[in-house]
């Protein structure tokens, strides 16, 4: 079988993939394989992601990083390391889903992963637990500048990523 260019690139960066015999054990408990609606035992999620499109493959983000593929692989292929590297590359190039971009932005600018609503505060008061203090998190913004994350977030604004 002639392998697509992406597969060669991915395998070069992650040589542990060479050990993969496509035995499909990773597929057994993989929710991205079982519920994306496009995979079967001959065409499993991991192989599809690694061979077709890689970072542009939208199904990449159906992976919850549950780690069962890695835990179960009889050949110790570090599938998670590859999946995370692909997601990170996709994110950096502005190809991640809007919801992923938004949550990262939200975390950096407020220190919380989700927006704090008025209802949250009302509920907390009713329950007798202290209200939350949404503050602009300057530390996290400084960290994001230093690591280069701020650059990736600005880049993604201009790309118009998928939803």
């Amino acid at each position: 079988m002639l392998l697509p260019v992406e597969y060669k690139t991915v395998i070069k960066r992650h040589p542990s993939l060479k050990k993969c015999l496509k035995c499909s054990v990773c597929h057994q408990n993989c929710i991205a394989s079982l519920y994306s609606g496009v995979y079967d035992l001959k065409n499993i999620f991991l192989f599809d992601v690694f061979t077709r499109g890689a970072i542009e493959n939208k199904n990449l983000w159906n992976c919850p990083t549950c780690d069962y593929c890695y835990e179960r692989c009889p050949y110790d292929v570090n599938t998670i390391e590859v999946l995370e590297a692909l997601k990170e590359e996709a994110f950096r190039k502005g190809l991640a889903p809007t919801s992923i971009m938004d949550q990262v932005r939200q975390t950096i600018s407020t220190g919380f992963g989700f927006p704090i609503t008025a209802y949250t505060q009302t509920l907390r008061e009713k329950l007798g637990i202290s209200s939350l203090k949404p503050e602009k998190s300057e530390d996290l913004e400084k960290i994001a500048e230093k690591t280069g994350l701020s650059g990736s977030l600005k880049e993604s604004k201009t790309k118009g990523n998928w939803k």
């Binding site: 919850p64 990083t65 999946l83 995370e84 997601k87 990170e88 994110f91 950096r92 991640a96 992923i100 949550q103 990262v104 975390t107 220190g111 919380f112 992963g113 998190s137 530390d139 996290l140 690591t147 994350l149 990736s152």
Partner: peptide, 13 residues
């Protein structure tokens, strides 16, 4: 602050 989340943030950066 947020831990941050391993599935979203951990994969992104």
């Amino acid at each position: 602050t947020c831990c941050p989340d391993p599935v979203v943030f951990g994969a992104a950066d």
